[in-house]
Amino acid sequence: MQELWEALVQAVSLIARLDGEVIEISLRSLYVSAAAILIAAVICVPIGGIIHFHDFKGKRVLINVIQTFYSIPTVVVGLFVFLFISRAGPLGGLELLFTPAAIVIGQVILILPVLTGMTIAALNGVDRAVKDTALSLGASGSQAIWTIIGEARFAVVGALILGFGRAISEVGAAMMLGGNIRGYTRVLTTAISLETQRGDLVLSLALGIILIGIAMVISVIVNILLQRY
């Protein structure tokens, strides 16, 4: 318990002092995962929409497969991407390994299934009558689809927050693909992992508290924005 209290005090003082390295690591975590969620959103929301709005053979199976990949281990994603971007891999020439971009790629792949699946679920959650209502009020087919997506915005944004949470809190891909290089690819989770191994539990806990704080602040901001619009 003592350690937890000390950690809390240290976390507050690290933030209050604007400790250079902590701020830098936190910001890197933020922008890497923000980039990942933005890229994933651009891919997943339309794909989720396409799957939802079309009836085809094997739709049920496809959705089940997507749901299965919700819980894909981060190290498996890390390993998979590693194989592609390491020197010997097919994308080795791009020299992406141990760069922030590599972490972004890993995190995008990690959250693709959950974001796609939750987009589908969000659209499923919209009353079927919304489409008929939109059409009967003069909407074109694509206007009606946008109306449905608009009605699902709370759930879609919820999915984005969840995906962001999964990205910023994962350590496997960040470690394997980023390499935890100080000042370059070190993010909150890899820093926590390192400090814990070095025995600096208080610093680890402080970084953990910052991590939770970031997640909380984002969730609150998004919720306030949603309630206003």
């Binding site: 009353d127 009558a129 919304v130 008929d132 209502t133 009967s136 009020l137 003069g138 109306t147 608009g150 009605e151 915005r153 709370f154």
Partner: peptide
């Protein structure tokens, strides 16, 4: 667009 319909269960947009 020359027609309009009100459904039994009113659907209002959010």
């Amino acid at each position: 667009r020359r027609l309009s319909m009100v459904f039994q269960k009113p659907v209002v947009f959010n």
